[in-house]
Design a binder for these strands. Sequence first.
DNA 1: TCCTTATTAAGAATAATTCCTAATTAGTAA
DNA 2: TTACTAATTAGGAATTATTCTTAATAAGGA
Lengths: 141, 141
Amino acid sequence: MQQIEQIVASLRDEGFRITPQRMAIVDYLIKTEDHPSADLIHKVVRKRYPMVSLSTVYKTLDLLREKKLVNEIEVEGEARFDAHTDEHINLVCMKCGKIDDVDEESLKEIQVKASKKSKYLILKSNFELHGYCGNCKSKMK
Amino acid sequence: MQQIEQIVASLRDEGFRITPQRMAIVDYLIKTEDHPSADLIHKVVRKRYPMVSLSTVYKTLDLLREKKLVNEIEVEGEARFDAHTDEHINLVCMKCGKIDDVDEESLKEIQVKASKKSKYLILKSNFELHGYCGNCKSKMK
DNA sequence: TCCTTATTAAGAATAATTCCTAATTAGTAA
DNA sequence: TTACTAATTAGGAATTATTCTTAATAAGGA
């Protein structure tokens, strides 16, 4: 689990300025279990820090993604973000839209195999399973 | 490997009409190795069947996806389509945008494990690896 | 405290996708 | 073959997530 201090330190080390906007966004991402969209991040962060604009949210997310401090996955036409950056499976509920993480050891192995077979240089991975979460599943019968 | 006849039959069986537009789109998807976007499908199909509109391409792809006759993956803000519907890994080149498929037996197993652990009812999966393809890799040094 | 330059806010621009509606046509039945 | 009708289509407008632009602001160093 990443800590705010680690992320702030790695940004500072590379010469990026530590602004209240960046702090607020990182703080939220670290603490939430959700996989929020840019828009949701904006809405939530605004409650406490009303001066954060949506374009700053996008820029900050770009930066964090580039530095591999957050993960991005695209679901139904929008990007969703997550501070859980080690390899895992994203379970996406097609009903309520929530995303859960599940760890799975064999992903690394699969990645190595596929890389050899295909001659690709792999830089990132994304494993998704889509369906209905336990909650939505039981509501449906 | 799916055949055109199979797809056409399963559409007809469910009462959908077999139009030249649908035939043209299915025909292209079956024959190509690419994972084309809706826009590319439109451009290609238009050469032979100039009466196909982009909105029909989208509608047809919706239908085919719903009937699980094609696979959809979202890459960099656009949807890419593929008639290869059994479980596999999509290798996405971050340079040239091409997508290659790699089969991997253990995906089914992983899916079962994750489903048990999470209580999700899994309906579809998407496994992506992003990086540079062999071709782009060698061009870069 | 001041200065430089990265960063931000705000809104305009872009691009993929969806929506809307009148016109067309596939499939069916006479 | 012809006529019918509901599904489908073409074309363009509307929507929506994201990117771009620019002037104003402020972080961090001197």
